[in-house]
Design a protein around this nucleic acid. Structure first.
Lengths: 200, 200
DNA sequence: CACGAATTTGACCAACTGGTCAAACATAGG
DNA sequence: CCTATGTTTGACCAGTTGGTCAAATTCGTG
């Protein structure tokens, strides 16, 4: 029953989501205003509300689009592959996301900081189930002597924190590194950390 | 020339700062309202503004109080001590701060996420200088063969991200761990990560 | 071009925001 | 108990906020 979106609809909806990502990722939901989003999207406020029924709707659309991509790399962690290589690959994929989609990372960070009111159920449901499953996989690798003894949950937290740090704390990282590119050093360092932690 | 604060002043200023920390750490500066802070402090809004001249003044007072404690542990990293023990101690001290002062950590995270408009100069000045100095210390340890080869800057980022993650992403960590206490596992894991990364 | 549908806008609104102020109230010291 | 100082409050204000609406404009298509 959903009518096909027109050319203008597609363009403007995309512009609004891009603008919303820019604004919400910086100031969070409560700290952002529709005027800011409208300004960034190059639309008037009433026009913006012609495409989305409310501020909440824009924010929620961004969040649900984000969650799809957010869980996917961990899903890809493969039981059959080489254990250390699988985990290294996962970490590098997360790091690439911080480099290529820093605003998405900051949007997520902002939502979590505010207590995750809109995604708490996803965290306690889908995410927890997924992490439990992958923790089992890692425990299997440990039992088989393929990787060193490690708490799989905190290993996953380590990968998340390390990789997202480069997006979420970008301004601090750059303040310290000056002109040096954070992600070059980060990639090699990430490999180091994980290899030394896991390689038997 | 500053008059000694009365008993009531001390009590109310402390209550306001505590309330401000609670609110600002969750919603950031822009996302928080004076009404929220006043409510949390158990004061009326005009009464709140009797003790602090503006919303900005409360926030800034919190930030500068925070920055003192924030840099102190890294200052304590001692050139003369046992290298691995020094770094382990630093990391554990940071982890303890995440456990004991999670709101402070989230306040800082919120400020950084929003582009650090009020503390960018501290990051590029005092913090950068401090990190440069400590990076030199770690490079000395590496050259002396006391710890494994590692990028000292990214090592420091690793410690920051890992420890602060347990405060900033608390709700996510708890969603995944359920009833288990995050900080018990975290402490041992943190030791593991750093020891395996550094011990020659 | 014509005409219905899609799009855009200016004017507007009620609620909320940070902040002010004079008046009322509490307190401590003499 | 008196008084000067410190504290608290209700009423208020101008600017901002998310959101509405009817009217105006533009677009696609026959």
């Amino acid at each position: 029953m959903t009518k096909p979106a027109t050319r203008i609809q597609q363009k403007n909806q995309a512009a609004i989501l891009a603008a919303g990502l820019e604004v919400f990722s910086q100031f969070g939901f409560r700290g952002s205003t529709l005027d800011q989003v409208a300004e960034a999207a190059g639309l008037s406020k009433p026009n913006l509300l012609y495409y989305f029924p409310s501020k909440d709707a824009i924010y929620s659309a961004l969040l649900s689009r984000l969650l799809e991509n957010w869980l996917e790399p961990l899903h890809a962690l493969n039981d059959d592959g080489d254990p250390v290589a699988e985990i290294l690959g996962y970490a590098q994929r997360k790091l690439a996301m911080s480099r290529d989609f820093p605003r998405e990372s900051r949007l997520f960070a902002n939502e979590i900081l505010q207590g995750a009111p809109r995604i708490k159920d996803v965290l306690e449901g889908e995410l927890r189930t997924l992490v439990d499953a992958k923790a089992k996989v890692i425990e299997g690798w440990i039992a088989a002597g393929k990787v060193k003894q490690v708490d799989p949950y905190h290993l996953i937290f380590t990968i998340w924190s390390l990789t997202q740090h480069y997006a979420d704390f970008d301004v601090q990282v750059r303040a310290i590194l000056g002109t040096r590119d954070p992600f070059e050093g980060a990639s090699a360092h990430l490999d180091d950390v994980i290899t030394r932690m896991l390689r038997v």
